[in-house]
């Protein structure tokens, strides 16, 4: 393989790795949105919080794997607490109040991490077994990025099985389409909602710990990837998992090739893509017309 093609392919794989993490983040968001009708603006805050928890866990135990296992769970607990004690109370005031509440929580998290961990970027190194390069068909590629792609696929596989092959997944899907009816059938819908919120936040947590070694842990992490995640669900259509998947990959590829070909305007490319899609279809690619 000649070096130019290898570079293009490597850049493409960078894009896919970023897109997969983006999808992990966006799918939690879109799951909560589709189910509860709440766009959780604090989602990216939780994503960043998980990266900080991961850093702290590595400081304490010295093991990346422990961080990857525990940090998302702790984040999920925080998400559930927020749903139980804040969102539920505001529900009666309507969706706008809920949206603004999540914004308030996101502000508190964004500034709160600065109080606890300071505003400098903290390093989080990948485990030793994943450092270095892997040889794929004569092309050198960082092992950790490959690991991220596989981790994302694994989480998605688990989610797919959970949603489409289990009884709980069936209840969740039923509650998405008609929560009142499911409630009337004697299923405790608030508990189901709480579970979904926890799972969504857990996925954001996995994304946060996974991306931390690449982007370093800093208070800018949330706005850096958060904006992209929100664009993904706007363009993909609210509550659509397939749309989120497709647009995440497009976003990842756009940003990685954009940096290569148009370094000056790479940040604008995604917005142009969004503007074009919305001008044609305001409800997003796979969104339902409201």
């Amino acid at each position: 393989m000649d070096p130019t093609t290898a570079m293009y392919i490597a850049q493409g794989m960078h894009g896919i790795a970023y897109g997969m993490v983006l999808f992990l983040l966006a799918s939690g968001l879109t799951l909560i949105l589709g189910m509860m009708g709440i766009l959780n603006l604090a989602h990216t805050g939780f994503f960043m919080l998980a990266a900080y928890f991961g850093y702290q866990m590595v400081q304490w135990t010295g093991s990346y794997w422990a961080a990857l296992a525990a940090a998302p769970l702790v984040t999920a607990v925080f998400g559930i607490l927020m749903e139980r004690f804040l969102l539920k109370k505001v529900h009666v005031y309507g969706p706008m109040a809920e949206l603004i509440l999540t914004m308030g929580v996101s502000l508190v998290i964004l500034d709160g991490v600065k109080v606890i961990w300071g505003s400098q970027s903290l390093p989080l190194s990948p485990p030793e077994s994943l450092q270095g390069l892997v040889n794929i068909f004569g092309m050198q590629y960082p092992a950790y990025r490959l690991f991220i792609i596989f981790l994302s696929l694994l989480v998605l596989f688990i989610m797919g099985v959970l949603l489409y092959k289990t009884r709980m997944g069936m209840i969740i899907r039923a509650a998405v389409s008609d929560a009142q009816m499911v409630d009337a059938l004697g299923i405790n819908v608030p508990v189901v909602f709480m579970l979904v919120f926890g799972i969504g936040t857990w996925m954001a947590g996995v994304a946060g710990v996974a991306i931390a070694p690449i982007l370093t842990v800093s208070p800018g992490l949330a706005s850096q990837m958060g904006m992209d995640a929100f664009i993904v669900i706007i363009v993909g259509g609210f509550g659509s998992l397939g749309g989120a998947f497709l647009v995440s990959l497009i976003c990842g590829l756009l940003s990685s090739y954009g940096i290569q070909f148009l370094p000056q305007y790479s940040a604008v490319l995604i917005f142009i893509f969004m503007a074009v899609v919305l001008a044609v279809k305001p409800e997003g690619l796979f969104g339902e017309k409201t």
Partner: peptide
């Protein structure tokens, strides 16, 4: 941080 708390 203060703004967020007041808002909530």
């Amino acid at each position: 941080l203060i703004l967020g708390l007041i808002l909530i």
